[in-house]
Design a protein around this nucleic acid. Structure first.
Lengths: 213, 213
DNA sequence: TTATAGTATATGCGCCACGCATACACTTAT
DNA sequence: ATAAGTGTATGCGTGGCGCATATACTATAA
């Protein structure tokens, strides 16, 4: 069997050939046999999933309960006075679920409901002192897990990665609600010149002075 | 008030000054006022969390039920014959939870339990034809969401990002069990020359020919 | 001003996935 | 052969969640 025949045979019979791979891409590629980027996306997806899982696991392990409690604490540290409605969106819960979450966290003395300054319906949520401590623990463990994950990267690579992250974040930003989800575990003090805020401002939304929370 | 006094004043009184920022880092940095990387980690964390959330949401929205079902289908497409024990680890469920998940998916005709070739205790799990279709939908939506997320990047940046991802994945790999979690939503055909497999092999673990699944 | 619609929060209710503990089947070591 | 270890299955209780609804308040319109 000639090598040419073998190549053609493979191209026609392997699963890879049937999934859109072609001769040109096979001849032109070095490490990545398929130049269509499937492998890149696969590996990057695993990477993002691993880091994301680590972030969620590390942060919620420091929270008083599993699930969205960690995000709620961090979000309230970021934006004191948040309403229950926006909290619900930020942590990805239904409104009723958020009310119950606030109930539990309030019972534990971590957050408190106050009257809204202008709207009698809205409750403004604030961290208590104990809540601030809990939130700090959550954020610290998140920061640590990211630092560990990226510890093998050189400072220059970190910069490149951060630059890419920043541009992707800005381009994929859809709405104010989504911005709360994205930033739900971010550290306020650490996010100097936050790209999400900047992008929202460019679009005419001022998240920082948004008193409806 | 001289500018020098003003600078010193800020350094001593702003929250930023109290959190480890110093004069040197302020003078030396351009965009990132703090050179300690806090902002980089913050932004990258938001980035990873957003992509990770998108992956989970997109894939599980194509699955017959929310939660770990999508991961289970993808994992079984990747490794047919997987045991319930390893499936449980891969999708992050207790053993009992995995048994129930398998019950539901089997009732829906998506997977089936077969006898293990050598071990009478172990059940080998396989996708049915319908399960393969469902799994393909899950993987396709994952691939699409990643492609959309990275669509603004130039091919060269994609390569850099993938290279970083690959190295971080290999360096952060801890165990065979963790590798199943990391790859739980990966596409088998798309992951040519899988870095996780390569890393495991270097460490003397052969995930591909692991019949205990 | 009054009436109506819209919005924010709270709650009754039921569901279902989950984990713990246990039981059973089978394998491996002594 | 007995004991210990491992994989799977199940009874049971728990708890967070969403749906639908009730209540309070705001905003708009006649």
């Amino acid at each position: 069997m000639s090598s040419g025949f073998w190549l053609a045979h493979c191209l026609l019979t392997t699963p890879r050939a049937r999934k859109g791979f072609n001769l040109l891409s096979m001849l032109g590629a070095h490490k990545d046999v398929a130049m269509d980027g499937t492998r890149d996306r696969n590996i990057f997806g695993a990477f993002a999933l691993m880091i994301g899982d680590d972030i969620v696991r590390a942060s919620s392990s420091r929270a008083p309960e599993a699930g969205p409690a960690a995000s709620a604490l961090a979000l309230l540290a970021h934006k004191p006075g948040l309403s229950i409605r926006m909290l619900a969106v930020g942590v990805g819960l239904s409104h009723a679920g958020a009310v119950r979450l606030v109930d539990r966290l309030a019972t534990e003395g971590l957050i408190e409901r106050r009257e809204h300054s202008t709207d009698g319906r809205t409750r403004s949520l604030y961290l208590t002192r104990a809540g601030k401590i809990a939130s700090d623990k959550v954020l610290a463990s998140r920061d640590q897990v990211i630092a560990e994950g990226l510890s093998i990267l050189k400072p220059r690579e970190l910069k490149i990665l951060c630059d890419i992250a920043e541009r992707v974040l800005r381009s994929r930003l859809e709405s104010l609600e989504q911005s709360y989800r994205i930033c739900r575990l971010c550290c306020y003090e650490g996010c100097t010149n936050c790209p999400i805020d900047a992008e929202l401002l460019e679009r005419g939304v001022d998240r920082e002075n948004d008193d409806d929370g």
